[in-house]
Simulated scan of single mutants.
Amino acid sequence: MNTAEVVDRYYELANAGEWDAWCDLFTADQTMDEQLAGHVEGRETLREMMRGFPQTWAVFANVPRHIVIDGNQAAVVSHISGRTHAGASVEADVCNYFRITDGLISYMQNVHDSVPFAPVLGK
């Protein structure tokens, strides 16, 4: 897959809640700097982390608003809408940066305001 296809698939799988297939979009030695989870290394570490995602979110959507692609890099401004199983709503704008290597995500970083995620973090 080229960069645009990888990015499109990333959001498609996330919005479908297909987290195992979503993790398969990353290289085995991927690195992620995630605003809430911190620094995550390795696809299997990411896969283990994402196993808990459905227990947190009853509803989750991450909708791209603006995508910029430059070779093997992409930046996406998106909006997250979610609801926890406890009924708390989350609305947040996000910016994701992707670096693609051989058709897989080798590095990703997301940046957003963490305040809207307080209900998820138990604050």
Rank of each mutant, 00 (worst) to 15 (best):
residue 1 M to I: 00
residue 4 A to V: 11
residue 5 E to L: 00
residue 8 D to E: 13
residue 8 D to A: 14
residue 9 R to K: 12
residue 17 G to E: 04
residue 18 E to C: 01
residue 19 W to H: 11
residue 19 W to C: 03
residue 19 W to E: 00
residue 20 D to H: 05
residue 20 D to Q: 04
residue 21 A to T: 03
residue 22 W to V: 08
residue 23 C to R: 08
residue 26 F to W: 03
residue 28 A to N: 10
residue 28 A to P: 07
residue 30 Q to C: 15
residue 30 Q to Y: 12
residue 31 T to E: 14
residue 32 M to V: 14
residue 32 M to S: 15
residue 33 D to C: 12
residue 34 E to Y: 09
residue 38 G to V: 10
residue 46 L to F: 14
residue 47 R to S: 06
residue 49 M to A: 11
residue 50 M to Y: 12
residue 53 F to C: 06
residue 54 P to L: 09
residue 54 P to W: 15
residue 55 Q to M: 10
residue 55 Q to G: 12
residue 57 W to T: 05
residue 58 A to R: 04
residue 59 V to K: 13
residue 62 N to H: 09
residue 64 P to L: 02
residue 64 P to A: 06
residue 65 R to T: 07
residue 65 R to S: 06
residue 69 I to N: 00
residue 69 I to A: 05
residue 70 D to F: 07
residue 70 D to H: 01
residue 70 D to N: 07
residue 73 Q to Y: 05
residue 75 A to V: 14
residue 76 V to A: 01
residue 77 V to L: 14
residue 78 S to W: 12
residue 80 I to Q: 03
residue 80 I to N: 02
residue 80 I to M: 10
residue 83 R to K: 11
residue 85 H to R: 03
residue 87 G to W: 03
residue 88 A to S: 13
residue 91 E to S: 15
residue 91 E to G: 14
residue 94 V to Q: 12
residue 95 C to N: 02
residue 97 Y to E: 10
residue 101 T to Q: 11
residue 102 D to T: 00
residue 102 D to N: 13
residue 105 I to R: 07
residue 107 Y to G: 02
residue 108 M to C: 12
residue 109 Q to D: 04
residue 112 H to T: 05
residue 112 H to R: 03
residue 114 S to A: 11
residue 115 V to P: 12
residue 116 P to H: 06
residue 117 F to P: 07
residue 117 F to Q: 00
residue 123 K to L: 11
residue 123 K to T: 05
